[in-house]
């Protein structure tokens, strides 16, 4: 199927369990637009998610879906990509799932660099469990669980990804859908692990980082910004306060993890026969 034939209607329309005004709607729409822009048909795409309101996103469009455990979207995504490298694999979850419960997998995934995309809905709060702090909550952010305000230093996923040399690192915002669509499309088309940390308001549980708060701070990186400059990328990644830069912050070229497996050059593992005399060959080692 060529790109001209894929339409947004093919990705379907579903009722959601999201609150009115939720940033997730913008992200879902941008994701669909990006998949269409990439010319991908639903059956070519596998969306893997964890648990949380963001992790429900794959249920709201037509695609192959594995909606797994809290924090574990990345290992499932990696396993699936290693079984069928022809799938376009996207891991999608919230900040608590991707950076908290799944923090170790996040670091390991960036190190491996498979050809997958990571979309994190980052609203700086736990929504589904009703308003506790998340790994990205600002210091001083008061909740029922952190009544005196968050003490811990917030996790900066973009800065961490840059320091780890992730092959594409981007930050987007659900309130700027056109820009976000382009970022997601770029991440999908990038050869390597691509992270898009997507800022979004939680209209119910985060009364600090609101649409207005983001609107006052978010700005697009200049056209002459060079994402291959790692020092500059790190400075840009750390800029999160009065001003928040959006765009592809860092980009580099790295070997793909899956290329080490000769067998994967032949396509999906499910399509490959077990070598007929394979066992006989192996047993010779033990005589």
């Amino acid at each position: 199927m060529t790109s001209s034939q894929v339409t947004i209607e093919e990705y379907g329309k579903y009722e959601t369990a999201w609150c009115p005004g939720c940033g997730n709607f913008g992200i879902l729409n941008s994701l669909k637009q990006a998949l269409v822009a990439c010319g991908l048909a639903p059956h070519q795409v596998l969306l893997v998610s964890g648990i949380g309101q963001a992790a429900k996103t794959p249920h709201y469009l037509k695609a192959n879906v594995f909606n797994g455990l809290h924090g574990r979207s990345l290992p499932v995504a990696i396993g699936a990509k290693l079984a069928n490298p022809e799938l376009t694999v996207i891991a999608e979850s919230g900040d608590g799932c991707m950076y908290g419960e799944g923090g170790n997998h996040f670091l390991a995934a960036l190190r491996r660099n498979l050809d997958i995309t990571i979309l994190t809905h980052d609203n700086q709060v736990y929504g589904l469990t009703k308003g506790q702090a998340s790994p990205t909550s600002d210091q001083g952010f008061a909740t029922k669980a952190q009544p005196h305000g968050v003490v811990a230093t917030p996790f900066n996923p973009v800065a961490v990804a840059v320091t780890m040399g992730a092959s594409l690192v981007a930050r987007g915002y659900s309130g700027m859908p056109g820009h976000l669509t382009k970022l997601i499309a770029q991440a999908i088309q990038h050869r390597g692990t691509a992270l898009v940390d997507i800022l979004q308001p939680c209209v119910v549980f985060n009364k600090v980082n609101t649409y207005r708060w983001y609107k006052e701070r978010c700005y697009e990186l200049n056209a002459d910004y060079d994402p291959r400059d790692r020092d500059q990328a790190l400075r840009t990644a750390l800029e999160f306060g009065g001003r928040i830069p959006l765009g592809v912050i860092y980009k580099t070229h790295k070997p793909l993890f899956e290329e080490q497996f000769a067998v994967l050059k032949k396509g999906p593992l499910a399509r490959q026969e077990v070598p007929q005399d394979g066992l006989q060959q192996l047993l010779r080692h033990y005589t």
Partner: peptide, 14 residues
């Protein structure tokens, strides 16, 4: 990660 990878791979046909 190990068991979740195995589940992902099995889901995709290995």
């Amino acid at each position: 990660a190990a068991i979740n990878m195995a589940i992902g791979a099995a889901f995709a046909g290995a």
